[in-house]
Write a protein that binds this DNA or RNA. Structure first.
Lengths: 175, 175
DNA sequence: ACAAGATCGTATGCGAAACAGACGATTGGT
DNA sequence: ACCAATCGTCTGTTTCGCATACGATCTTGT
């Protein structure tokens, strides 16, 4: 069958080199989720719920859909995710006066305070995650990530969507 | 120094600042998966299958379990993932002569060629993903990711596990 | 050599999550 | 007033991770 090849061929090094971006991203995100989940304890939906709260507090999203797109999750998921946050008294759903189809998600005082508290713990978790990097490198990594993904979450949802997958259908002829 | 702008309240900026690492990682990984999925077409298990193939070709993993740990996926998933790769004629399962409990996964010639071909497309997809970054920045990002996650995938699986979440229980009590 | 315990791969069941489709409510345009 | 489009919700399907269990195999102790 001549199936076997030596452990490290040209294709091997090429594979390793071309793939370690995806691998590194995956590994780092895994570590992030793991540590954040540990850090925030029993928050409604774990790291996802926390990130949602951050987006609610940090940016002004006119609708649940904008929120969902920003975070890259499905709108049907956002429904019961917001449900649980409301039930926990962390956010409120209020009809957008400009367009009553949309429901604007705003944080309650308690929600804002909870996020501020969690942010400290998450910050510690992030520093733990990036323990192999010194201060300059951490700042550089954050800056490069931010630059690669586009403007910060809170500002222009449209530009963010370019990276989060929003413009894929528009950009891509067929699938 | 930070990319932080001025728009909102204390809690808002704090939230945004503390969270944009997780957000950036998630957004970038989403973009990566999206583009890679598009690029490789109907590969057995999409981006996951491709990454598995890369690990098979690039590193010498003694067992399916080592492979699964390296990629951060469950061993039960690895079973039928390898099943499908075998069925597609890309890899072969062979008992490890040193330990017949383990099944070593080796790439066939066809699998190696397929990976080499896919690597080119994935490389293009990655360059597209990092379109906002220039050459130096891309190299820096890769370097920082690699440094943050530990040694390269193929070499020391134990050290990789430190970041992928394997050693969480053993490592954390003191930290 | 034999028994006891640990490890690897596989099969199975359960719960969570993503995804697609459909529906009511609402908006804007004609 | 009608029609198309959008938003939020609901439902069903499929996938995925995870925990458990079991047979095969290795390791260790006696």
């Amino acid at each position: 069958m001549t199936t076997r090849a030596e452990p490290q061929t040209d294709a091997a090094t090429q594979a390793e080199g071309a793939d370690d971006l995806g691998w590194g991203l995956g590994a780092l995100l895994r570590g992030y989720r793991q540590r954040v989940t540990d850090a925030i304890g029993d928050f409604p939906h774990g790291a996802r719920g926390y990130q949602t709260m951050c987006a609610v507090v940090g940016g002004d999203h006119p609708s649940q859909l904008a929120l969902a797109r920003n975070l890259g999750i499905d709108k049907t998921v956002m429904t019961y995710l917001v449900d649980d946050l409301v039930e926990a008294g962390l956010v409120e759903r209020r009809p957008n006066p400009a367009d009553r189809r949309q429901r604007q998600v705003v944080a309650t005082d308690r929600g804002t305070r909870a996020v501020a508290e969690l942010c400290r713990r998450v910050d510690a978790a992030e520093n733990d995650l990036l323990g192999r990097l010194d201060g300059d490198e951490r700042a550089t990594l954050r800056r490069l990530l931010s630059k690669a993904t586009g403007p910060a979450p809170g500002h222009t949802a449209e530009a963010c969507a370019l990276v989060t997958g929003e413009a894929e259908e528009a950009d891509r002829p067929t699938e």
